[in-house]
């Protein structure tokens, strides 16, 4: 008799457990859906912001192009032909046209987010390649590049082109932060199955409020003519797709800045 009761009790408990398990599964699915919706909503909002940012960035140089072209035409029509002034105005038109070209180029890069083409790579060599590509500017601006590369670093499995793009963005940023010269320290080392790279400059630094926004699309503290502020957000996106990260640090105004890139090491042919 007791055994039958026990059996029935067990059965009841099993039924209850199954019911709870179904309810839990349902709740999890609903949560997942809600999360997806939130992410999607967030994406929409972010896309809206990006699209708005893009429109803004294009509108300014466009205003310059249209405005000065109209002014030139008006001068010519009213026979106000001062060659130096007209040449100057035309240079402004050209400069702003180049800006538009650069904005669109950056946007397409951002939008395309092409598939990673991974291969085994040596970090130190990649950094050297990136430095070589922008060496003319470093030399021109009196920037001393100091390299402290870790030896025998494990290889990483990355898209070499895109990673070079990241390095160039960071180095260019550092160059722009040191218009009157300075030092760029590049360090590489291994830690906890990650390859780490630090780019440290002695430039104008990043203020606390800006540190949080430095990887946002179109965020820039530079003059509009110096760039549109997409480089670092593109770099952020590339690092995420590599399952790595990029971080910015600075002690504030004129105290330099440091960008640290983390890439998972290759272990047994697969990223850890």
């Amino acid at each position: 008799m007791q055994q039958i009761r026990l059996f029935k009790e067990n059965q009841r408990l099993i039924d209850e457990l199954q019911l709870s398990s179904h309810k839990l599964e349902k709740t999890i699915n609903e949560l997942k859906k809600a999360q997806e919706q939130l992410v999607q909503a967030g994406k929409m909002y972010a896309l809206g912001q990006l699209s708005a940012g893009a429109a803004h960035e294009i509108n300014n140089p466009l205003a310059g192009i249209i405005g000065f072209t109209e002014a030139i035409l008006s001068d010519l029509k009213n026979q106000r032909t001062i060659p130096d002034e007209i040449a100057h105005d035309m240079e402004i038109v050209l400069k702003n046209a180049e800006r538009c070209k650069s904005i669109i180029g950056n946007l397409l890069t951002f939008a395309r987010a092409r598939e990673l083409q991974r291969q085994e790579s040596d970090i130190n060599s990649l950094i050297d390649d990136a430095l070589a590509l922008v060496e003319y500017k470093t030399r021109f601006q009196n920037i001393e590049v100091v390299k402290r590369y870790g030896e025998n670093l494990d290889k990483v499995n990355i898209d070499g082109d895109q990673m070079t793009h990241v390095f160039i963005n960071i180095i260019t940023n550092a160059q722009n932060a040191m218009p009157d010269g300075g030092e760029l320290l590049v360090r590489t080392w291994s830690e906890n199955n990650f390859a780490l790279i630090e780019f440290k400059d002695t430039g104008i630094g990043i203020e606390k409020e800006s540190l949080l926004k430095v990887f946002d699309p179109f965020f820039t503290t530079r003059q509009p003519s110096q760039g549109v502020g997409l480089g670092l957000s593109i770099s952020y996106s590339i690092m995420r797709r590599h399952e790595g990260s990029i971080e910015a640090k600075s002690d504030g105004k004129n105290k330099g800045a440091s960008f640290i890139v983390k890439i998972p090491h290759l272990t047994a042919g697969r990223p850890v």
């Binding site: 929409m44 909002y45 896309l47 809206g48």
Partner: peptide
């Protein structure tokens, strides 16, 4: 609307 649409002004 901004969570459902990309808004162009």
């Amino acid at each position: 609307l901004q969570s459902s649409f990309v808004i162009n002004y």
